[in-house]
């Protein structure tokens, strides 16, 4: 009896337990993929295309009327300032060709592996229809609720070759301004290059940089300006030019060879001072200036975007300027 009773009660307990278990099926819990050690690319190729399409749409609308108002949706920083100046000139001269053509088709995309803001995506565009060199577009998202805006563009300099970078599906690691492991940190690169621009070959940093077209153009332009003023005004006119890296305008990405792609904003200021006589401006300068002649001084403000290829530390290669843009954004004078 006792055994039988035990068996019976065990059976009953088992059945009741079975029924209870069937009623108490657990709710599923969220089991997301573990957060990756390296954040995924901020944008995939499709999203970058969408961003570029948005940029193209904004540019198209703005270009049609040389109206800078719509630009704010998709442009910021040097790009916004440059484009606005170009519209001004273009409107006054009725010459669309003064605007920089900005293709939005991409050749190469550098998408940052980041979870923080601001975020920058770099795009090397197709060759423009005017057969100029491709542009290097830097699109920046300042905060989570902002769209990606074109912060700056630069033209690939003749002969320059982009360092190998990771595919956008993998993403490139963004580097801080003081990133080690390079021959120079990104902020040193910009500061030293500004010094080289200002001082030329006598700069102590000149040996670090490979000769580049941009530097040559800056020197040439400055020399031409000096030359012209000297020819016209003699010693009554003086020209000085300063190069100031833009604060916070520095975006760096690691490349596959261990180096870095450094994109920096810089402001070039050209100051003319006259002790006598006057200078007459034409065309685009006059358009920006708002008048044609100055008799005491004139200040040209250029918005520069520079793209450097920085070799890794220990490398014997030199820092190269891959792309640059030098757009006159403002002229003041009296």
């Amino acid at each position: 009896m006792s055994i039988r009773r035990r068996l019976t009660s065990a059976a009953i307990v088992g059945i009741v337990g079975l029924l209870l278990a069937s009623c108490a099926a657990g709710l599923p819990l969220a089991h997301p993929d573990p957060a990756p050690a390296v954040p995924p690319p901020a944008l995939d190729a499709k999203q970058v295309s969408a961003v570029l399409a948005g940029l193209g749409a904004v540019l198209k609308v703005a270009d049609a009327t040389n109206d800078p108002a719509p630009l704010a949706a998709r442009l910021s920083g040097p790009a916004l300032a440059s484009r606005t100046a170009e519209y001004l000139v273009s409107a006054k001269l009725a010459d669309p060709s003064v605007r920089t053509e900005l293709p939005v088709g991409s050749q190469t995309v550098i998408s940052p592996d980041t979870n923080t803001w601001p975020r920058a995506v770099v795009v090397v565009t197709e060759q423009p229809q005017n057969l100029q060199s491709p542009r290097v577009l830097t699109l920046v998202q300042d905060d989570p609720r902002s769209p990606y805006r074109l912060w700056g563009w630069a033209r690939l300099l003749p002969g320059s070759k982009m360092p190998p970078t990771a595919a956008p599906a993998a993403g490139s690691k963004p580097l801080p301004p003081d990133a080690p492991g390079l021959v120079l940190t990104p902020e040193e690169v910009v500061a030293q290059y500004a010094d080289v621009l200002a001082k030329g070959d006598v700069s102590t940093f000149a040996p670090s940089f490979a000769p580049d077209v941009f530097h040559k153009q800056i020197e040439t332009t400055l020399a031409a300006t000096k030359n012209g003023l000297t020819q016209g005004l003699g010693t009554a006119a003086a020209v000085t030019e300063t190069y100031q890296p833009g604060p916070g305008e520095l975006y760096s990405f690691s490349t596959l060879d261990g180096g870095a792609l450094v994109i920096a904003g810089m402001t070039t200021t050209t100051s003319l001072t006259l002790s006598g006589g006057k200078i007459e401006f034409q065309n685009d300068v006059a358009a920006l200036l708002g008048t044609t002649t100055v008799s005491s001084s004139a200040v040209f403000v250029w918005s520069d975007v520079l793209v450097f290829s920085v070799p890794p530390k220990g490398s014997s290669e030199l820092i190269q300027v891959l792309a640059a843009e030098h757009v006159r954004t403002a002229i003041t004078g009296s």
Binding site: A69, P70, A72, S146
Partner: peptide, 15 residues
């Protein structure tokens, strides 16, 4: 502050 624009944007979005 960054994106202050005097006029409202009417740009279409990529989406």
């Amino acid at each position: 502050a960054d994106t202050a624009s005097p006029t409202p944007s009417t740009a279409p979005t990529p989406s």
